[in-house]
């Protein structure tokens, strides 16, 4: 594992306001700390996250992107989460061609009541991105 001590990853999180965002909120009100590396953007549904949003985040310096929605079958919009997930799946194919390590993008499905799950997911993702090191994409821009 590379030595990335001192590197603080910048992580953009697109969170479904009905579930994962609510879980993040729960962490807040429950005083359950999670790494400050994460900047949260609330969306109506992960199906709303466009390629432009993901790619712009990378281009503007994000080292990791967390997309948090509902668990399968629980979407308020008849499967917007699954459509969103299919989009990320295909976009990753292009990202690999561009040389981007697709582990920088992680999808999670966390219910609103699962504050602890959210806390651990952010801790884990932050640690994983720290291990990956800074994203090389931003140097292009």
């Amino acid at each position: 594992m590379s030595d990335n001590t001192g590197f603080e990853p910048k992580i953009i999180a697109f969170l479904c306001k009905w579930t994962t965002y609510a879980a993040a909120d729960l962490c807040g009100v429950s005083r359950m700390p999670y790494p400050p590396n994460i900047s949260i953007i609330s969306v109506n549904c992960t199906g709303e996250v466009t390629a432009d949003m993901i790619l712009s985040s990378l281009a503007k310096g994000a080292d990791g992107i967390l997309i948090g929605g509902c668990r399968p079958g629980h979407c308020r919009y008849e499967g917007g989460n699954i459509k969103g997930s299919n989009r990320v799946y295909l976009l990753k194919r292009a990202l690999r061609e561009f040389g981007v390590n697709t582990e920088r993008i992680r999808e999670v499905g966390i219910a609103g009541a699962q504050g602890l799950v959210f806390q651990r997911a952010v801790e884990k993702f932050t640690a994983d991105i720290r291990a990956l090191g800074p994203s090389p994409v931003v140097s292009n821009v």
């Binding site: 466009t50 390629a51 790619l55 499967g79 699954i82 299919n86 976009l91």
Partner: peptide, 27 residues
């Protein structure tokens, strides 16, 4: 902003949609 990303986004939205969380066919 990103033409390629936009078409990939559109195509992924059009795959036949099982909605059951098992997206093997779509993939």
């Amino acid at each position: 902003l990103d033409q390629g990303g936009a078409i990939l986004h559109a195509l992924a939205s059009l795959v036949s949609f099982s909605g059951d969380g098992n997206e093997e066919k779509e993939h």
